[in-house]
Amino acid sequence: MEHTTEHHEHAGGGTKEIIKVTVILTVLTIVELILGFWMIDIPLDSQSLRLGIKGTIVILMMAKAFYIVAYFMHLKHELKNLIMTIVVPLALFIWFITAFLYDGNSFRNLRNTYDPHFKEQSTIKVEKKEHGTTEKHEAAPVKEHGGH
Protein backbone atom coordinates (compact mmCIF):
# COMPACT_ATOMS: atom_id res chain seq x y z
CA MET A 1 0.00 0.00 0.00
CA GLU A 2 1.82 3.08 -1.09
CA HIS A 3 -0.97 5.57 -1.34
CA THR A 4 0.83 8.60 -0.05
CA THR A 5 -2.00 11.02 -0.58
CA GLU A 6 -1.34 14.26 1.15
CA HIS A 7 -4.37 14.28 3.34
CA HIS A 8 -5.45 11.24 5.20
CA GLU A 9 -5.63 12.01 8.86
CA HIS A 10 -8.46 14.47 9.00
CA ALA A 11 -9.91 14.33 12.45
CA GLY A 12 -13.32 12.76 12.63
CA GLY A 13 -15.26 11.37 9.72
CA GLY A 14 -15.79 7.88 11.06
CA THR A 15 -18.83 5.72 10.52
CA LYS A 16 -20.11 6.77 13.92
CA GLU A 17 -20.19 10.39 12.85
CA ILE A 18 -22.00 9.51 9.62
CA ILE A 19 -24.70 7.66 11.52
CA LYS A 20 -25.03 10.50 14.00
CA VAL A 21 -25.45 13.10 11.25
CA THR A 22 -27.92 10.87 9.39
CA VAL A 23 -30.05 10.62 12.52
CA ILE A 24 -29.86 14.37 13.09
CA LEU A 25 -30.89 15.13 9.49
CA THR A 26 -33.76 12.66 9.70
CA VAL A 27 -35.02 14.11 12.98
CA LEU A 28 -34.77 17.68 11.68
CA THR A 29 -36.71 16.73 8.55
CA ILE A 30 -39.40 15.01 10.59
CA VAL A 31 -39.76 18.06 12.84
CA GLU A 32 -40.05 20.23 9.72
CA LEU A 33 -42.77 17.97 8.38
CA ILE A 34 -44.65 18.00 11.70
CA LEU A 35 -44.58 21.80 11.62
CA GLY A 36 -45.73 21.69 8.00
CA PHE A 37 -48.67 19.42 8.83
CA TRP A 38 -49.54 21.59 11.80
CA MET A 39 -49.59 24.68 9.62
CA ILE A 40 -52.20 23.16 7.26
CA ASP A 41 -54.91 23.57 9.88
CA ILE A 42 -53.96 27.06 11.02
CA PRO A 43 -56.23 29.68 9.45
CA LEU A 44 -54.73 32.45 7.34
CA ASP A 45 -55.84 35.12 9.82
CA SER A 46 -53.48 34.03 12.58
CA GLN A 47 -50.61 35.54 10.68
CA SER A 48 -48.08 35.84 13.47
CA LEU A 49 -48.39 32.17 14.39
CA ARG A 50 -47.95 31.13 10.75
CA LEU A 51 -44.99 33.46 10.45
CA GLY A 52 -43.46 32.02 13.61
CA ILE A 53 -43.77 28.46 12.29
CA LYS A 54 -42.29 29.48 8.95
CA GLY A 55 -39.38 31.13 10.76
CA THR A 56 -38.80 27.97 12.77
CA ILE A 57 -38.82 25.90 9.60
CA VAL A 58 -36.21 28.22 8.06
CA ILE A 59 -33.99 27.87 11.14
CA LEU A 60 -34.29 24.06 10.93
CA MET A 61 -33.42 24.31 7.23
CA MET A 62 -30.25 26.25 8.06
CA ALA A 63 -29.35 23.59 10.64
CA LYS A 64 -29.77 20.85 8.04
CA ALA A 65 -27.63 22.82 5.59
CA PHE A 66 -24.94 23.19 8.26
CA TYR A 67 -24.82 19.45 8.97
CA ILE A 68 -24.66 18.53 5.29
CA VAL A 69 -21.87 20.99 4.52
CA ALA A 70 -19.91 20.48 7.74
CA TYR A 71 -19.98 16.70 7.96
CA PHE A 72 -21.09 15.16 4.67
CA MET A 73 -19.04 17.60 2.63
CA HIS A 74 -16.39 17.39 5.29
CA LEU A 75 -15.81 21.12 5.47
CA LYS A 76 -15.61 21.16 9.25
CA HIS A 77 -12.54 18.94 9.16
CA GLU A 78 -10.69 21.02 6.56
CA LEU A 79 -8.14 23.68 7.38
CA LYS A 80 -9.45 27.03 8.53
CA ASN A 81 -8.12 28.68 5.37
CA LEU A 82 -10.32 26.54 3.16
CA ILE A 83 -13.34 26.98 5.41
CA MET A 84 -12.97 30.75 5.30
CA THR A 85 -12.50 30.93 1.56
CA ILE A 86 -15.83 29.12 1.15
CA VAL A 87 -17.90 30.59 3.96
CA VAL A 88 -16.94 34.26 3.84
CA PRO A 89 -18.13 34.89 0.24
CA LEU A 90 -21.38 33.09 1.01
CA ALA A 91 -22.00 35.60 3.80
CA LEU A 92 -23.03 37.94 0.99
CA PHE A 93 -26.29 36.03 1.00
CA ILE A 94 -27.26 37.65 4.28
CA TRP A 95 -27.30 41.00 2.58
CA PHE A 96 -28.87 39.69 -0.64
CA ILE A 97 -31.78 38.08 1.15
CA THR A 98 -32.42 41.01 3.48
CA ALA A 99 -32.23 43.61 0.74
CA PHE A 100 -34.29 41.80 -1.87
CA LEU A 101 -37.05 40.60 0.42
CA TYR A 102 -37.30 44.06 1.97
CA ASP A 103 -37.54 45.50 -1.51
CA GLY A 104 -40.24 43.06 -2.55
CA ASN A 105 -42.24 43.81 0.54
CA SER A 106 -41.90 47.54 0.06
CA PHE A 107 -43.02 47.23 -3.57
CA ARG A 108 -46.16 45.40 -2.44
CA ASN A 109 -46.94 48.05 0.16
CA LEU A 110 -46.45 50.85 -2.34
CA ARG A 111 -48.74 49.21 -4.85
CA ASN A 112 -51.39 48.51 -2.24
CA THR A 113 -51.26 52.16 -1.24
CA TYR A 114 -51.06 53.87 -4.62
CA ASP A 115 -52.44 51.36 -7.14
CA PRO A 116 -56.16 50.76 -6.54
CA HIS A 117 -56.37 48.32 -9.44
CA PHE A 118 -53.68 46.08 -7.97
CA LYS A 119 -55.33 46.20 -4.58
CA GLU A 120 -58.76 45.43 -6.01
CA GLN A 121 -57.51 42.54 -8.14
CA SER A 122 -56.16 40.82 -5.10
CA THR A 123 -59.45 40.92 -3.23
CA ILE A 124 -61.69 39.43 -5.94
CA LYS A 125 -62.50 35.85 -5.11
CA VAL A 126 -62.67 33.41 -7.97
CA GLU A 127 -65.44 30.84 -8.05
CA LYS A 128 -64.09 27.42 -7.28
CA LYS A 129 -65.41 24.51 -9.25
CA GLU A 130 -66.02 21.80 -6.70
CA HIS A 131 -66.76 23.04 -3.24
CA GLY A 132 -66.81 26.80 -3.67
CA THR A 133 -70.18 27.53 -2.11
CA THR A 134 -69.57 30.48 0.13
CA GLU A 135 -67.60 32.70 -2.22
CA LYS A 136 -68.50 36.33 -2.02
CA HIS A 137 -68.03 38.66 -4.94
CA GLU A 138 -67.17 42.18 -4.01
CA ALA A 139 -66.58 44.08 -7.22
CA ALA A 140 -69.01 43.91 -10.10
CA PRO A 141 -67.00 42.73 -13.11
CA VAL A 142 -65.34 39.54 -11.97
CA LYS A 143 -62.63 38.56 -14.32
CA GLU A 144 -62.69 34.80 -14.29
CA HIS A 145 -59.25 34.26 -15.75
CA GLY A 146 -57.08 31.55 -14.37
CA GLY A 147 -59.45 29.78 -12.07
CA HIS A 148 -62.20 27.47 -13.14
Binding site: F96, I97, F100, L101, D103, G104, R108, R111, K119, S122
Partner: peptide, 13 residues
Amino acid sequence: LISYGTIRFSTNG
Protein backbone atom coordinates in the same frame (compact mmCIF):
# COMPACT_ATOMS: atom_id res chain seq x y z
CA LEU B 1 -34.55 31.44 -4.86
CA ILE B 2 -34.10 35.06 -3.81
CA SER B 3 -35.87 36.17 -6.98
CA TYR B 4 -38.71 33.80 -6.11
CA GLY B 5 -38.84 35.21 -2.60
CA THR B 6 -38.84 38.79 -3.82
CA ILE B 7 -41.74 38.18 -6.20
CA ARG B 8 -43.63 36.35 -3.52
CA PHE B 9 -43.12 39.19 -1.06
CA SER B 10 -44.32 41.72 -3.62
CA THR B 11 -47.57 39.83 -4.30
CA ASN B 12 -50.69 39.92 -2.15
CA GLY B 13 -51.70 36.28 -2.47
